[in-house]
Computed example of a mutant assay.
Amino acid sequence: MERAQLLDEYIDVYMKSLKYLDSFVSEPAMKYKLSFEQYLIMHDIAHQSHVTLARIADKRGVTRSAISRQIKVLLKLDYIYQQQDEKDHRRQFLHLTPRGSKIEAILAKAAEDRFSGWIDIFGEDRAMDLLQFIRAFSEAANLENKSRNL
């Protein structure tokens, strides 16, 4: 297969299937007026301690202002609240409200159920192979990106 044809095949697969990975959480999240990114922030808050806006931005490799916009929506929806760090008053820790905890749990269960269905169809070995390939691809893409920026 020629490289140009291979590229076309990759694009086709992306458009028809890999984009679905985003929608498996974002569809259920829309019911609660959440984007996929906002759900991920809530998920981080639910499963980590001492979560801050800066920590999320660093983890995602995006600007603090991008995360700030998402957090403003979550605050307005009463899904999260901020609590000042007693040791460093400039830092705000993020926490889920009771309502936010309930919604995050519902969405996490929906994502887990959908993902489990895929595992049942394809098996854990193929799922692990795919995950390893995606990680290797991501690492190679990041290295290429860094070398371009030098």
Rank of each mutant, 00 (worst) to 15 (best):
L75A: 09
S26W: 05
A57F: 05
K31Q: 11
R114M: 04
Q84I: 13
E86M: 14
Y32D: 07
S101I: 00
Q84T: 11
Q84H: 01
R69A: 15
L143M: 03
E112S: 06
K102S: 04
N149W: 09
A136M: 02
R64L: 10
D85H: 06
R91M: 06
N149E: 13
P98W: 05
K59F: 04
Y81H: 09
A110M: 00
E27V: 09
I119W: 09
S101E: 14
V13I: 12
I56M: 02
H89N: 11
E37A: 10
K109E: 09
S35W: 13
A29F: 09
P98Y: 05
S101G: 13
Q132D: 14
D78S: 12
K76T: 08
L53M: 15
Y32W: 14
S138M: 05
A141G: 12
L75G: 02
K33N: 15
Q92C: 04
A57S: 15
E139K: 00
S26F: 01
Q84G: 03
R126L: 13
R64V: 11
V62K: 02
A66I: 14
N142R: 07
Q84W: 02
M1Y: 03
R148N: 09
N145F: 07
E37P: 00
I134T: 07
G61I: 03
Q48M: 03
I80N: 02
H43I: 00
I56W: 00
L94C: 05
G61Q: 03
M1S: 08
I11A: 10
R135A: 03
K59L: 11
H89A: 12
L18N: 11
S49Y: 06
T63W: 07
A141R: 07
N149A: 12
F137S: 10
L34C: 02
A54L: 07
K19A: 13
Q84V: 14
M42Q: 04
S147D: 00
I71K: 01
H95W: 09
Q5F: 11
A127E: 02
K31Y: 13
R135L: 07
S35I: 06
E27A: 03
A140W: 09
I11P: 04
R64H: 03
A141C: 14
I106M: 04
L40F: 15
I56E: 01
E144D: 09
V51Y: 00
L18I: 12
M42G: 05
P28G: 03
A57T: 07
Y32G: 05
Y81S: 00
H47R: 04
V73G: 02
F122T: 14
Q82C: 06
M30E: 12
A108L: 14
R148A: 14
L74E: 00
D8N: 10
